[in-house]
Simulated assay, not measured.
Amino acid sequence: MMNALPLLVTVLQLQLLSFLVAAVGYSNGFFYQDNGNGNGKKEIYFNGVRLHVETTEAPVFAVRGSSATLPCHYRYEPELNIPRRTRVKWSWLPADRGHETDVLVALGQRHHSFGDFKGRVRLRRSMPGEVSLVIAKLQLNDTGRYRCKVIDGLEDESVTIDLALRGVVFPYQPSRGRYHLNFGTAQQACEEQDSALATFEQLFSAWEEGLDWCNAGWLADGTVQYPITMPRKACGGADMAPGIRSYGTRHRHTHHYDAFCFSSSLKGHVYFLQQPHGLNFTEAMQICEGDRAKIAKVGQLYAAWRFMGLDRCDAGWLADGSVRYPIAHPRPNCGPPEPGVRSFGFPSHHHRHGVYCYISH
């Protein structure tokens, strides 16, 4: 009886293997599942045909609220005369380098989208082999790397393409002062100002455009960095070359810095209101509401300055309690000789200034 047990296990294993071979086919040590590309007899083509998936090398640029098309095409070599049944999967690696998540899967004319992309994405099939991804109503956090994968039976090929938004990066610290934000509160602070934590690529582009800031701030990937165009002793050393200074990855809960926020285009516009004797903070909010608008956020003021050329040499309240003004054309008595958004910090709420309001279209 003891010797019969191994024999029984062997018989069961052979029966299981026979079932698997009958169910899905077995060849050269690999199981193959017929997904409709065979000849109807559960035979898989082995004819040396290779699947190619292609896209552009350059990133796709867009602005918030617009649509973007991420190109992707597939072809066979040699070319096939009979269409094959393929499955397409688009996935996304966020700018914060988190987990790759599904965006859309499609089989034939059927498709399904996921998460925040639901209802905003579709495939463009304007020519044979095209499976480009169209994303509508772009959001600030849609930036990142997208993967287009085409699956044909057991063979699959994929390519990646980056989506970047055009916008403006600005340093941000709360009213409590310098270095009070951990990673989570930095994310929240940017979101409250109609923006998002900047990516390294966005900060690098801002540095190339002349951004110089000596306070370290969080980025979307959890690193802490700051841009220097004019090296000096207090900012990494006077002998160092210009560039992005990095503290590397920091503890997201226990370490505290400022934030670098990123804002893109607006669906509305920002404008200035004033009263003869100025407005305190409460009055500033009320006068915007009375004009069927809201007091503008910092990210909205920066976006209006960058995208709409807002130029005003008058200090005004913003939603976070700060007082700022935008200068597109530098001139005497309006701050430094470079364009930018000037800041008076966070004065007491009883001080009197104008106000910047925002109204959406």
Results as ranks from 00 to 15, higher is better:
Trp207Glu: 04
Pro227Gln: 10
Phe204Pro: 04
Ala136Pro: 02
Trp317Asn: 10
Phe272Tyr: 15
Arg84Cys: 02
Arg124Glu: 15
Ala189Ile: 00
Arg85Phe: 05
Pro128Glu: 10
Val60Asn: 05
Gly321Tyr: 02
Thr249Phe: 14
Arg250Pro: 03
Trp90Glu: 09
Phe262Thr: 13
Ala238Thr: 02
Ile82Asp: 01
Phe46Cys: 07
Asp156Leu: 10
Gly290Phe: 08
Leu203Met: 04
Phe260Thr: 00
Ile295Lys: 07
Cys148Gln: 09
Leu133Cys: 07
Leu279Ala: 06
Phe170Met: 07
Met308Asn: 14
Arg245Pro: 03
His269Met: 02
Ser158Gly: 02
Leu266Tyr: 15
Gln15Val: 07
Gln109Asn: 11
His361Gly: 11
Gly25Trp: 01
Glu77Tyr: 06
Glu77Phe: 05
Ser322Lys: 11
Ile151Val: 15
Pro347His: 06
Tyr358Gln: 11
Phe262Lys: 13
Phe346Gln: 01
Gln286Ile: 04
Ala293Gln: 03
Tyr302Cys: 06
Glu79Val: 05
Gly108Tyr: 01
Val224Cys: 01
His253Asp: 12
Gln274Ala: 07
Asp152Asn: 06
Ser348Trp: 04
Val103Trp: 02
Lys89Pro: 01
Phe183His: 07
Glu157Leu: 14
Ala216Phe: 12
Glu191Met: 02
Arg342Cys: 05
Trp92Ile: 07
Pro94Met: 00
Leu17Cys: 02
Leu123Gly: 13
Ile359Lys: 15
Tyr356Lys: 05
Ala216Leu: 10
Leu219Pro: 05
Ala206Pro: 04
Gln225Cys: 11
Ile295Glu: 05
Glu79Leu: 03
Thr160Pro: 09
Ala189Trp: 04
Asn39Met: 03
Asn215Lys: 13
Thr282Ile: 07
Phe346Glu: 01
Arg85Ser: 10
His253Phe: 15
Ala293Gly: 09
Gly210His: 01
Arg145Lys: 13
Ala68Glu: 04
Glu77Arg: 12
Gly236Ser: 13
Arg84Phe: 01
Ala4Arg: 06
Glu191Val: 01
Leu123Ile: 01
Ser18Ile: 01
Ala198His: 08
Ala293Arg: 04
Met127Lys: 14
Arg232Glu: 11
Ala95Gly: 15
Gln300Ser: 03
Pro83Phe: 13
Leu20Tyr: 15
Asp152Gly: 04
Pro83Ala: 14
Phe117Asp: 09
Leu318Tyr: 11
Asp156Asn: 15
Asn333Leu: 09
Arg245Met: 04
Met240Tyr: 02
Tyr45Lys: 06
Gly167Val: 09
Ala328Pro: 02
Leu20Arg: 15
Val121Arg: 07
Leu163Asn: 12
Gln139Asp: 00
Ser195Gln: 05
Tyr74Ala: 10
His349Leu: 07
His329Phe: 12
Asn47Arg: 08
Asn215Glu: 14
Cys190Pro: 06
Thr143Ala: 14
Tyr179Lys: 08
Ile44Ala: 12
Ala296His: 08
Ser264Met: 10
Glu209Tyr: 10
His112Asn: 13
Gln139Pro: 00
Arg252Gly: 08
Phe117Met: 08
Thr160Tyr: 12
Asn280Thr: 00
Ile327Trp: 15
Val341Glu: 03
Asp314Ile: 07
Cys313Asp: 14
Gln139Ile: 00
Lys118Tyr: 11
Glu100Thr: 14
Ser158Ile: 02
Gln202Val: 14
Gln193Asp: 00
Pro326His: 03
Arg124Pro: 04
Gly340His: 09
Glu100His: 10
Gly98Thr: 09
Arg342Lys: 06
Met285His: 12
